[in-house]
């Protein structure tokens, strides 16, 4: 697999803010429902500010996650080949040669210890 790049710090901070907003709105909802139960009120939708807070946290999370994720790679073979040098193409395994004249030429060479 290709090398993972470091996630963007900005995206992480945005995700953190999104999480705090989400947590706070969840807690507010819970509190609101407990209040309604205590005063025997009917549940008639959430208050507008909690709804707006939730939608804002969802929007922030979207931006944060998109920033944190790795960048897309260009999948065309053409653009990938344009980045590689000719040496990397020459070094492919089908060019390896094991039956060469080196065995005869260097027969009398003594390697030093």
């Amino acid at each position: 697999m290709a090398v993972q790049q470091a996630p963007s710090q900005l995206g992480r901070i945005i995700c953190l803010f999104g999480f705090l907003l989400l947590f706070h709105s969840g807690y507010s909802t819970f509190e609101h429902l407990s209040y309604l139960k205590a005063v025997d009120g009917h549940e008639a939708g959430l208050p507008l500010d909690i709804t707006i807070e939730l939608l804002m946290s969802v929007a922030l999370f979207g931006l944060g996650i998109v920033l944190v994720a790795d960048d897309f790679k260009e999948i065309l073979m053409e653009t990938e080949m344009a980045k590689q040098s000719i040496e990397s193409l020459d070094a492919r395994p089908s060019f390896y040669s094991f039956n060469h004249r080196g065995r005869a030429v260097f027969r009398n060479v003594v390697l030093k210890d």
């Binding site: 697999m1 996650i65 994720a69 790679k73 260009e74 999948i75 073979m77």
Partner: peptide, 20 residues
């Protein structure tokens, strides 16, 4: 196409979609 990059892109998409 480079198969490895197709797989990499769909992995990124899966990460974004499932977290969101």
């Amino acid at each position: 196409y480079v198969d490895m990059y197709i797989a990499k892109n769909s992995q990124t998409m899966t990460f974004i979609r499932s977290s969101y």
